[in-house]
Design a protein around this nucleic acid. Structure first.
Lengths: 144, 144
DNA sequence: GCTAAGTAAGTTGTGCGCAATTGAATTGTG
DNA sequence: CACAATTCAATTGCGCACAACTTACTTAGC
C-alpha cells in the first residue's frame, strides 16, 4: 500500500502559500498606486533602466509576451508607460516610462519595508531566505 | 532623491519566481495524471480525508469558492470527484472521491521526490525552507 | 412561527500565467 | 538576389486567484 503525499509536508505548497500571502500584503499598498503586483514588478525593472524591449522584460521576470503584452497595454492605459515601435528593428517594441511612471518610483520607495515588517522574520532570516530561494529557482530552471 | 526598490533585492519576487519555477517542474508530471497543480493540491487534501465541504477545502488551501467551485467542477468532469448536496444541510456540497480519484493517489506517490531531486538543496535545507516559509505565511496572514 | 442575521456555495468580472499559434520583420545561406 | 530559418511581439484559449455580489438555506431572537 503506497502512501499518498501529505499536503503539509510539501515545500511546493509552502512556496505557493507564502507567495500568495506576500502578494496579499502588497495588494492594498499597491492599490494606492493603482498597480497590481506583476505590474509593480515591471515598473521595478523599468525604474532600474529604460527603455526596455518586451523580450528583455520577459527575461528579467520570467514572463512571456502572452503575459506581458496585455499587462503593458494596461500600464500604458494607466499613463505610466509608453510603447514605441523601434525604428531600427520594426519587430521590437520599446517600453518607455512616462513622467508619471517615473514619479511613481518615489511613492514606491517604502513598499518593501512593509513586507519586511509583516514577515515576522529577522533581517538575517529574510536575507537567507532570499538567497535560498534564488538558489532553488536556479536549480529548478536548470532541471528542465 | 529617494531610491527605487531593486527587483533583485525583494524577497517577494524571490518567492514569486520560486513558486512559479516549482509548479513548472510539477507541470509535465501532473500532465500525465491529467491534473493542474491547484487540482493536485485539492486531491492531496481529499486523499488525506474525505468527503470534505468546499469551505473546508478552502480553509486548508487558502482558496475561496470563486476559485474552488469551477475547479471542482473540472475535477468532477475528469471523473476524480463527485459533488453531492448534503442532506442535513442543503447549503453544503460534500466532495467525495470516485474510485478513479482514489486510484490516482498511487500514481502520485513519487511526485514530491521529483521536486526534491530538482531542487538542488539538501534534505535539511528543504526542511528548513519549508519551516521558514510556514512561519512567514503565518506572520503575513496575521499582519492583516 | 416569523423575521433578521448569518452561512455555504455559486456566479461574474478582471488580471495574470502559460502553451500554442500567427504575422511581420530580420538574418543567414547559397 | 532569393528564400528558408529565426526572432519579436501579439493573439487566442484555458485555468487559476480574488473581489464583489447573488441565491439558497439555516439558525437565533423575539
Amino acid at each position: 500500500m503506497t502512501e499518498a503525499p501529505r499536503l503539509d509536508r510539501q515545500v511546493c505548497f509552502a512556496l505557493y502559500s507564502a507567495s500568495r500571502a506576500a502578494t496579499a500584503v502588497y495588494r492594498p499598498i499597491l492599490d494606492d498606486l493603482g498597480l497590481t503586483y506583476p505590474q509593480y514588478l515591471v515598473m521595478l525593472v523599468l525604474w532600474e533602466s529604460e527603455p526596455r524591449g518586451v523580450k528583455d522584460l520577459g527575461e528579467e521576470l520570467g514572463l512571456d509576451s502572452g503575459t506581458l503584452s496585455p499587462l503593458l497595454k494596461r500600464l500604458e492605459a494607466l499613463g505610466f508607460v509608453e510603447r514605441r515601435r523601434s525604428g531600427e528593428d520594426e519587430r521590437r517594441v520599446a517600453i518607455h516610462l512616462t513622467p508619471a511612471g517615473r514619479e511613481l518610483s518615489g511613492k514606491a520607495t517604502g513598499i518593501p519595508q512593509h513586507l519586511a515588517d509583516a514577515a515576522g522574520l529577522s533581517a538575517e532570516e529574510l536575507e537567507q531566505l532570499r538567497t535560498t530561494l534564488g538558489r532553488l529557482t536556479e536549480a529548478l530552471h536548470r532541471s528542465h
